[in-house]
Design a binder for these strands. Structure first.
Lengths: 353, 353
DNA sequence: GGCCGCGATGTTTGCGTAAACATCGATCAG
DNA sequence: CTGATCGATGTTTACGCAAACATCGCGGCC
């Protein structure tokens, strides 16, 4: 090739910005000796292009390193093929695993995922995120969040953006995908009762969390239905540290032989507190967690816990949001993903006591 | 409001697609009685617009619920204000925390973050991700990954996309931001030696990880410099389970009084194994981890560990990539983020043996 | 008093793509 | 043989925005 002034063949005629010599369909068309429309047809895999022509176009694309410009494409098509995900903090296993599943499922459908992290979980922040999201290149939004933060924010949200909510209730107002909190709780509590425990204590999550609330409600309901006394509630904030502090209290209750903990992190702290106070697990106290985080099998002792299928939650979120995108007719409602009890070594029959 | 046929005033004249009644600058301009260019000026906050006019335009925007179309904007401006993040799996704390910091820092700069998760860490996958990324609406890419996976993939990558790498070495070929693995390791090992341990064993991460490799190298170097014997290497795969298995081995070594573990998860498994084998921590064996995950303070006993500042890594990544974007002149090189040793209860002087 | 300069606004244009429509040659039925 | 049909391709246009350039009116200066 002659490189007299070291510009590529068909040098792009604009240099709007440093280092953006992007190749357009027109460039490809010129090299392949066809019209840009034909390039478009090949690029989008339409039939009705002669095999020979198609090959030439593909060659030209390869040679020039052509990549479709997604901005132009989005402008023309009116869709971005991108999903927005709003979540408060990636510090909880659940959120992260759900996000990961969403991203994977979206990729499989040819959608990208744009992340909108919230600094603090306030309605103002949520509102701001929605506002930004709208001028962002996003077709729909999945929110991994408690709904009560959402309500105020969606008021001024134009209806064109579809919303699906994970980890929440409020199926009457939104399309919701969630873990079967109640079912999981019931299984755990019944398992403990089945082992022979007279009743089950509960180390709950924070008051402002619906997930925590539903686990607490289900715990109480299960005990009541079984005709067992409902011990006083002990509250944590999801963190291992709060589990430890709560554990110090629980260790002092000599009649406490079984604890259902609202998540695995708190269970970790609880185990430490019980150990420090000389209460053996599971001989003196049985513990069941919720989540089944990767480390749960390495706790001391390995933790019996309720497994949440976050991957499935993520998948269903994407499915739901895409369905809403394609035909707007999906009714609101909640889809529950079942849990299953993973039995390890932290729960056993009470040792006579 | 009259909602006779529930369409907004100035009903858009095209219905390209169901449910996309999007409002354009022209609509706003018409309502405000100005040209669309003036709307553009207001929208972009340019000076030189009469206060009265500006107010009218803003009112019109509010009334119609105008949102700039980011596709058109990107097409015109030639930039998306979006950063791509490629990472293999969100299952490690480090990746997640880095991602979170990146998203936050990016948001502060007015950039969005698009996530590209990789199903499996192979070069093919990485290549594929890069390929998709190019036709994605992304100005630059941050890769949270071992570099050796990257090399083959970047070959066919056009130079217009800037790349910054976290969690890796190879500062000669890329711009890299990383935790000071060696420094952190040295601090940990020296702390153990300083407590009086004759030498320090090492539970390493997987062979194919550069981060693990550097920790291992630094452990060995520190021991050698101090004139101490280097015990045989014990290898895990980052998981708590592998730490447990390795711990069973280590528990059998009666001369092992101190272990430097390449991450906290493995330390958790190690603690369980030592406990099961009746080796007390820290009386019989001291353990130091790496990462300082949130749960580390609730381990049994609370874990002394090397704190990584993932948030800083994320911030620096964004900073670096934006600098590269603005003036292409940033040289390659590695920025190291310092660590600090968090002293808890899992390391103590050897108890006479 | 005419001209300059400047602030405020309008008009034109083109970014890269793809739908809609137009063209053109070949094939085939009547 | 002629016109309808069809497959393959080209031409026009618009998506929404924002540079670049054009215009317009007004106050000040020589």
């Amino acid at each position: 090739m002659d490189a007299t002034h070291d510009s590529p063949p068909q040098a792009p005629r604009r240099g709007r910005r440093v280092g953006r010599p992007s190749v357009s369909m027109a460039d490809v068309a010129r090299l392949a000796g066809v019209s840009s429309q034909t390039v478009s047809r090949v690029s989008n895999g339409y039939a009705g292009v002669n095999e020979e022509t198609r090959r030439q176009v593909l060659d030209a694309m390869r040679e020039l390193g052509y990549r479709p410009n997604s901005a132009a494409r989005a402008l023309k098509r009116g869709e971005f093929r991108t999903l927005g995900v709003i979540t408060f903090s990636l510090s909880t296993t659940g959120n992260v695993r759900t996000l990961e599943a969403i991203a994977t499922a979206a990729a499989a459908e040819g959608y990208a995922v744009t992340l909108l992290p919230l600094a603090v979980p306030t309605q103002d922040e949520v509102r701001g995120a929605f506002s930004r999201l709208q001028e962002l290149a996003v077709d729909a939004v999945i929110v991994i969040m408690e709904v009560h933060l959402l309500d105020a924010a969606t008021i001024n949200m134009p209806p064109r953006v579809q919303v699906v909510v994970a980890d929440s209730d409020a199926g009457d107002r939104y399309t919701v995908v969630d873990t079967d909190q109640a079912g999981g709780t019931r299984t755990a509590v019944e398992h403990l009762l089945g082992l022979g425990h007279h009743t089950v204590w509960h180390l709950a999550g924070p008051e402002d969390s619906y997930a925590a609330q539903r686990r607490t409600d289900a715990w109480q309901a299960t005990l009541t239905e079984a005709g067992r006394p409902v011990p006083p509630l002990v509250r944590g904030d999801w963190s291992a540290g709060s589990g430890y502090r709560a554990g110090l209290e629980l260790a002092a209750q000599q009649d406490c032989t079984a604890v259902f903990t609202a998540n695995d992190q708190m269970a970790l702290g609880l185990l430490r507190a019980l150990h420090e106070r000389g209460r053996r697990v599971p001989e003196d106290v049985s513990v069941i967690g919720f989540d089944d985080i990767a480390e749960a099998s390495s706790f001391l002792p390995p933790l019996t816990t309720v497994h949440q299928d976050f991957a499935e939650v993520g998948r269903l979120c994407v499915q739901a949001v895409l369905r809403k995108l394609r035909h707007d007719d999906t009714p609101h409602g909640t889809t529950l993903v079942p849990t299953r009890l993973i039995i390890r070594e932290s729960a056993a029959p009470p040792s006579g006591d």
